[in-house]
């Protein structure tokens, strides 16, 4: 039975599942990376995802247009981000606690809207797999990488884009300096507030898309609390990835691949108790985290509200 794990079908299955499962994590974690690099910890990701997932699903269901759904998720995410930015930047609220407040708000609000506007679980026709010409014909590789839906491609394209913005542009430099030394950045004329508003809203938009990727691309249903902790894992992946987009990608892929591996282990009837199999991705992630923890340090100003000293 163990040998079956190494058959071509199974390996392709594991990799293709892993790529798909990592999608919502990537959107949410990359968004969170921007926020944290500028010194803001947003624990409300899960709530933003839930509201994004609901908005996307509801708009796609009523208008029949999936892109309107994505747009709705982005707008809802942006509004949540705006609110979060106001509370943490202008009001200097403690970031962790207010983030949890936003999570609970998103959880309750998405549930309330679902009950009032829909009332029952429905399905929608989501984004279909989009075969990339030529590339999708490559045996194995084509099946794994180039036969996914458009939001999956978007998530992976986001990684190099985020890396470029953070490391190669003036904007990225501003974000990093605000996260490392806001006083110095401020004295050089960088508006700490404006940069943080930008990163938090961007994080909200991406979390919204993460929710949409679940409700109208990967699962095509909306159910209460459907993200079930995914947003918190996304926050953990930012630490795991050392606040760098490529690191986040590695973490998301590792977690998702091990998760899809454990699904196959059970399907193939390999005699490992299901409880142990289900634990695997979490245990492995913690082990890797412990082994690599001292590699990089967090942005210095992370979770610290900025107050100009006059």
């Amino acid at each position: 039975m163990i040998s079956e794990l190494f058959s071509v079908t199974v390996l392709i299955g594991i990799l293709a599942s892993g790529i798909r499962l990592a999608t919502p994590y990537l959107y949410a974690s990359i968004g969170e990376t921007f926020g944290q690099r500028s010194g803001v910890l947003n624990l409300g990701v899960e709530g933003q995802m839930l509201l994004g997932a609901f908005a996307a699903f509801f708009v796609a269901l009523t208008t029949g247009n999936l892109w309107f759904g994505v747009l709705a998720a982005m707008i809802v995410g942006a509004l949540m981000g705006l609110l979060m930015a106001f509370v943490t930047v202008n009001l200097h609220a403690q970031q962790g606690i207010s983030g949890i407040g936003f999570y609970l708000f998103g959880l309750g609000m998405s549930d309330l809207l679902f009950q009032k506007l829909m009332g029952t679980v429905e399905t929608v026709k989501g984004f279909p797999p989009l075969k990339i010409p030529f590339l999708s014909n490559i045996p194995g590789v084509g099946e794994i990488f180039f036969n996914q839906n458009i939001l999956v491609y978007g998530a992976y394209l986001l990684v190099p884009a985020a890396w470029f913005v953070l490391n190669k542009t003036t904007l990225g430099l501003k974000i990093r300096s605000v996260g490392e030394n806001p006083d110095a950045a401020d004295s050089l004329g960088v508006s700490v507030a404006r940069v943080r508003y930008f990163t938090i809203i961007l994080g909200g938009v991406l979390s919204g898309i993460a929710g949409a990727s679940l409700s109208i691309a990967l699962l095509n249903v909306f159910q209460q609390n459907m993200t079930s902790g995914l947003g918190f894992i996304a926050v953990a992946l930012v630490y795991f990835g050392g606040w760098r987009p490529w690191g986040v990608l590695g973490g998301a892929l590792l977690f998702s691949m091990v998760n899809s591996l454990q699904l196959w282990i059970q399907v193939l009837g390999i005699p490992i108790p299901s409880d142990i199999a289900v634990m695997m991705p979490y245990v492995l992630t913690i082990l890797v985290l412990v082994a690599t923890v001292s590699r990089v340090r967090a942005p210095t100003a992370l979770t610290r509200p900025f107050e100009r000293e006059d």
Partner: peptide, 18 residues
């Protein structure tokens, strides 16, 4: 396939794909 959760719609869906 037991996915270890009563609420994880994403994992249930991926289990079905598997």
């Amino acid at each position: 396939n037991y996915i270890g959760s009563f609420s994880d719609v994403a994992l249930a869906s991926e289990a079905a794909t598997t």
